[in-house]
């Protein structure tokens, strides 16, 4: 658990972070959202002591970070930035093994770790291990950056606009991949962005910052449906609900796995008998990373209030109800 207690950071006369109080639970993905200059990156850099704070304190699992040696602290916190920052004179493998080497792991363990991590971020170790950063595309480099940050298996991951410099298509792929990785590893992540869509897509919690102050700290749906003040409302835009539909994944509201006997898969007709309705696999089912917009469209089309959520093996892993979608927005109508 990360706790910010009355944290303040000044540059000469400019107050970058102003009396910030915040608590981030372990395993949560918290997004710092705000326009440039709002203090979100500064807050991030206070946490791994790239910057020193002026007053207040930050604790990780109730240990004040001021009491930990900065280098030791940083080796336990992964860090990913927009410009990636891979060492150009090191291969992909060498780049990923920097921290494990500093921690004096043995060579075999490091080699295994590199392969595991490259697999995890979706790069084939055989192909990429010995490449140099200049031979990678922007998206590939950022995947390596994530692998490097995860190398020593740190419990905390800090990401400063990591997908800001890649093209929109690649960004979407990277975001989905990252969600998948996060689901698996359950790290405590702080993710900085100025992109409301990215925040809604990724965050369990969103902290909106402005002029160094925390304005609202809540779940994405509540930020959009119940903005704390006019600044947030303006920042979200008039189409806030639409953004929620577009970028909110089914995964976040679906009911969990249902027993095998409740559904029947017919491989011949590619249909799924579920809840008394024959769903066409190709058209009528949703995946866990489908958007609410797609889900709603299917529901309206086949006039069903509940849809099965399937995985890539065509297995039902959960179900999604219209009421739940309504509830995301419904909060506003309560």
């Amino acid at each position: 658990m990360i706790k910010f207690n009355s944290v303040t950071k000044k540059y000469e006369d400019f107050i970058a972070v102003d009396n910030l109080n915040l608590e981030i639970k372990s395993g949560e993905l918290c997004v710092f959202l705000g326009p440039s200059g709002c203090g979100k990156s500064t807050t991030l850099r206070l946490l791994n002591r790239l910057l020193d704070l002026d007053s207040g304190n930050i604790t990780i699992d109730d240990v004040n970070i001021g009491d930990i040696d900065p280098v030791t602290l940083r080796r336990g916190i992964g860090y990913v930035i927009q410009s990636v920052g891979l060492l150009p004179h090191y291969t992909v493998k060498e780049n990923i093994s920097i921290v494990p080497k500093l921690l004096k792991w043995d060579a075999i363990k490091i080699a295994e770790r590199v392969d595991t991590l490259l697999d995890l971020v979706g790069l084939s170790p055989e192909i990429y291990k010995n490449k140099y950063p200049r031979e990678l595309s922007g998206g590939e480099a950022q995947r390596v950056g994530v692998a490097r940050a995860l190398a020593a298996d740190p419990p905390i991951l800090l990401m400063d606009e990591p997908f800001g410099a890649v093209d929109p298509l690649t960004r979407d792929v990277l975001q989905r991949e990252f969600l998948r990785i996060q689901k698996k590893l359950k790290k405590t992540v702080i993710f900085v962005t100025h992109d409301i869509e990215e925040a809604v897509k990724l965050g369990n919690k969103i902290a909106v910052l402005k002029d160094g102050k925390l304005i609202q700290y809540d779940t994405p749906d509540r930020i959009i449906t119940k903005p704390g003040n006019s600044f947030i409302e303006e920042f979200i835009g008039k189409d806030g609900s639409l953004k929620l539909l577009l970028y909110y994944y089914v995964e976040k509201i679906m009911k969990n796995r249902i027993p095998q006997e409740d559904w029947v898969y017919n491989s011949e007709s590619q249909t799924l008998l579920y809840n008394g309705f024959n769903f066409c696999l190709n058209n009528h089912c949703v995946y866990k990373d489908s958007s609410l917009k797609d889900t709603l469209a299917v529901m309206l089309k086949i006039e069903q209030r509940v849809l099965p959520v399937i995985d890539s093996d065509k297995k039902v892993i959960g179900e999604v109800y219209l009421e739940d979608i309504e509830r995301v927005f419904g909060n506003a109508n309560e």
């Binding site: 790239l50 927009q82 990636v84 891979l86």
Partner: peptide, 18 residues
């Protein structure tokens, strides 16, 4: 040397000498 490179090296836990 790209500031991003030195900064991320620092952030992943390299000492200044390293």
């Amino acid at each position: 040397v790209d500031k991003g490179i030195t900064e991320s090296s620092l952030a992943i836990g390299m000492s200044k000498t390293e």
